[in-house]
């Protein structure tokens, strides 16, 4: 049996969760909403994060365009994702939601723009 205390990162309440894993079954206490339970289970079994950063723009109205992984990616892939982001470059125009890199660092998740750059 494994028990861990963690802060839920879903909303500003920041509930202190107690997550217990026993024979593959994960139980969560301390959450005030269902999202807290989902987070606790995921954090214990498959921790994931959304990565946000910026990508260089070639000859645009801005030098950088902000980006995010479209959904969360495995936590242990964060720095591999960043390595790809650092090397990436886009040509304007770029619009919110445009895919900058598909399947970033083998996560199966696309990297998308979060701002328009002309």
């Amino acid at each position: 049996m494994e028990t861990r205390e963690m802060t839920c990162i879903n909303c500003p309440l920041g509930c202190l969760l107690t997550v217990t894993k026993d024979n593959g079954k994960v139980t969560v206490t301390g959450n005030t909403c269902p999202r807290g339970e989902d987070y606790g289970i995921k954090e214990m079994t498959d921790p994931r994060r959304t990565v946000t950063s910026t990508v260089r723009v070639k000859n645009g109205s801005a030098v950088k365009v902000p980006v995010k992984t479209k959904t969360d990616i495995p936590k242990d892939k964060i720095f591999e994702v960043m390595d790809v982001i650092r090397k990436a470059e886009v040509k304007p125009p770029v619009h919110i939601g445009d895919i900058i890199v598909d399947d970033i660092a083998g996560t199966g998740v696309p990297l998308v723009a979060t701002k328009d750059v002309e």
Binding site: C11, T52, T54, P66, K68, I96, T114, K115, D116
Partner: peptide, 25 residues
């Protein structure tokens, strides 16, 4: 919001998690 590129904005207003520039847009 233009420089707040991280996510966590809009959970109350739009019921989804947005970055700063997306919320502003």
């Amino acid at each position: 919001l233009n420089q707040c590129i991280h996510n966590g904005f809009g959970l109350h207003t739009f019921k989804e998690e947005l970055t700063g520039p997306e919320y502003a847009a």
